[in-house]
Nucleic acid binder design. Structure first.
Length: 467
RNA sequence: GGCCCGUUCGUCUAUCGGUUAGGACGUCUGGUUUUCAACCAGGUAAGAGGGGUUCGACUCCCCUACGGGCUGCCA
């Protein structure tokens, strides 16, 4: 049997931003398809007209784009396909695998209330299931799936294994509402079938749905896709994800300054493993990712590890690309863009910055010496370092730097000698120098700073501080 | 309530009946050092509980506890 081309999809409902769990689901689908030369499709499940908004759709698309998850073809609107769904519902009717049900919401509600009051599990069994069409009343009806009443439905899941559901636990779900709008349960199946989806990778909150959906596939005589129900992500406290945990929309993470590559890496490892692989590029992830590596237990978000992974990625990213991403971060978070001069200096400085930052805000903080303009405004700690004695030493140093060739080796000789002359350790010299050059007490190496800003700027800042 | 899923260091996880239960983050100690980081070395720390099956269980089965999901004319 030849392996058909793999097609996966991400199908969010546009009722809010793309949250981190949805982002990971999309990522898994993307990795699986793209890693195997398959297609990754995007469908917006907007059949709930009350709660769906175009703003949410836009936010989801932005989130996916930032994460670098590109999809094939046009974004499919589920609502736009409602006629096709209705058509299938009627085909089911014609095939005898569905029937018209005239029970009203009130009747069903009353039934449920009575069952629950009696301490029973309310499975509504429609009296119209086998009714004679001649007895049909003249009023609105829904179309219900004629689900098997006995036996069991078995889901063969790539993550959960074989999961068995007793058919008598499942009721005849509605596939077409009385207003002619299809329900999710029908729409997903029709869409996945029509779009040629071969692998359904989604949250395990859909596991039970897979059984009902299997019945629709069977009713239509369509091949059932491969299922892979992945565990949900929990907050750091192990509870379900909510805004309280800071586990917000994917875009919030972008605002916090995490690089997309780091997010992908972290999210890939959350609930999935391949031996001891921890830090890897997207290309490597694409090559390694497989459904077999997905765990069955929900995973918690760990910001410390996220930061570590992001730091590794920042350190590995090529300078120009990193600067480009930093500027995108600036724009996305509403901060002023870099001037041409700052851009050039950042590019020059990147080598001594990227090893020490885990997020873009940290990178910016380390880059303060390169981004600031004279007069350098020292913070309290830095100002305290610039006492009269230190200023005197800096003044002398300025003279010695005047004609230095601006190379690290020579600067080392000069600074070391200066410290000796002053009768202090190198550290005692480096601190005021740091304060003068960056206005801060924590900065990159003094040599790196001097090399990056150049002789003239270095001397100007020293004079300013010494004066 | 019913059905379904889950449970290995604090956290993410490896292990697919036989290991001193491995790695990573965190944390602790030491090193490097020019501050903060980064980096390097080392330490710390785990099979929810109870029954089975087996020569041998983290691994297979059952029960309990705990957590989660579903149980809509929501998706």
């Amino acid at each position: 049997m030849s392996q058909a081309r793999i097609v996966t999809r991400f199908a969010p409902s546009p009722t809010g931003y793309l949250h981190i769990g949805g982002g990971r689901t999309a990522l898994f689908n993307w990795l699986y398809a793209r890693g195997r030369g398959g297609k990754f499709l995007l469908r917006i499940e907007d059949t709930d007209r009350e709660r769906s908004t175009p703003e949410a759709t836009a936010a989801i698309l932005r989130g996916l784009t930032w994460l670098g998850l590109d999809w094939d073809g046009e974004v499919v609107s589920q609502f736009a396909r409602k006629d096709r769904h209705a058509e299938v519902a009627h085909q089911m009717l014609a095939r005898g695998t569905a029937y018209k049900c005239f029970s009203t919401k009130e009747e069903i509600g009353a039934f449920r209330a009575a069952e629950e009051a009696a301490g029973r599990y309310p499975i509504f069994l429609s009296p119209w299931r086998d009714a004679d069409p001649a007895t049909y009343p003249d009023r609105p009806y829904v179309i219900r799936m004629k689900a098997p009443r006995t036996g069991e439905t078995i889901i063969s899941d790539r993550v959960q294994g074989k999961v068995t559901f007793r058919n008598d636990q499942l009721d005849d779900m509605i596939v077409l509402r009385s207003d002619g709008v299809p329900t999710y349960m029908l729409a997903v199946v029709v869409d996945d079938h029509d779009m040629g989806v071969t692998h359904v990778i989604r949250g395990d909150d859909h596991l039970a749905n897979a059984a009902r959906q299997t019945m629709v596939y069977d009713a239509m005589g369509w091949p059932v896709p491969v299922w892979a129900h992945i565990p949900l992500i929990h907050g750091p406290d192990g509870k379900k994800l909510s805004k309280r945990h800071g586990a917000l929309g994917v875009e919030e993470y972008q605002m916090m300054g995490y690089p997309a590559a780091g997010m992908r890496n972290y999210l890939t490892r959350l609930g999935w493993a391949h031996g001891d692989a921890e830090i890897f590029s997207t290309e490597e992830a694409l090559a390694m990712f497989d459904l077999d590596g997905i765990g069955r237990a929900p995973a918690r978000l760990d910001f410390k590890k996220l930061e570590h992974v992001c730091g590794q990625h920042i350190a590995r990213t090529e300078d120009a690309a990193l600067l480009h991403e930093l500027e995108a971060y600036l724009a996305a978070s509403g901060q002023p863009a870099l001037t041409e001069g700052q851009h050039a200096l950042m590019l020059k400085a990147m080598y001594c910055l990227k090893d020490r930052a885990k997020t873009f805000p940290e990178l910016l903080e380390k880059a303060r010496f390169a981004l600031t303009a004279r007069p350098v405004a020292p913070d309290a700690a830095a100002a305290a370092l610039l006492d009269p004695v230190s200023r005197g030493i800096l003044k002398t140093l300025t003279l010695q730097l005047q004609n230095a060739t601006w190379e690290k080796a020579e600067l080392e000789i000069i600074l070391t000698a200066a410290a000796e002359q002053a009768g202090i350790g190198f550290g005692k010299l480096a601190q005021p120098l740091r304060a003068a050059l960056a206005g801060r007490t924590a900065t990159p190496s003094v040599y790196d700073m001097m090399l990056v800003i150049g002789r003239d700027e270095t001397i100007a800042r020293l004079n300013e501080a010494a004066g």
